[in-house]
């Protein structure tokens, strides 16, 4: 699994940080940043949840 984010789309709801705090963070502007672009198996469910919850579709999960 590989993750990319588009911080221009981000509206800072923070749902990704709540869902997968090991993988996502908010930068000083409060916008999404990725801590690990290739999350381990134990994080993948949380990442998928973050993707479903994101209100502005700022997260893309690539299954490669």
């Amino acid at each position: 699994m590989r993750i990319t984010v588009d911080s221009h789309r981000c509206v800072g709801a923070g749902q990704c940080v709540l869902s997968a705090p090991e993988v996502f963070d908010q930068d000083e502007d409060g916008l999404v940043t990725v801590l690990t672009h290739r999350p381990g198996a134990e994080e993948q469910q949380a990442v998928r949840r973050a993707d479903t919850l994101c209100p502005s579709r700022a997260i893309t999960v690539h299954e490669d």
């Binding site: 509206v11 800072g12 923070g14 908010q26 000083e28 502007d29 409060g30 916008l31």
Partner: peptide, 12 residues
Amino acid sequence: FRKALIPEFTVR
């Protein structure tokens, strides 16, 4: 407006 306020409401 939203961008100006986001930093005030982050999880941290």
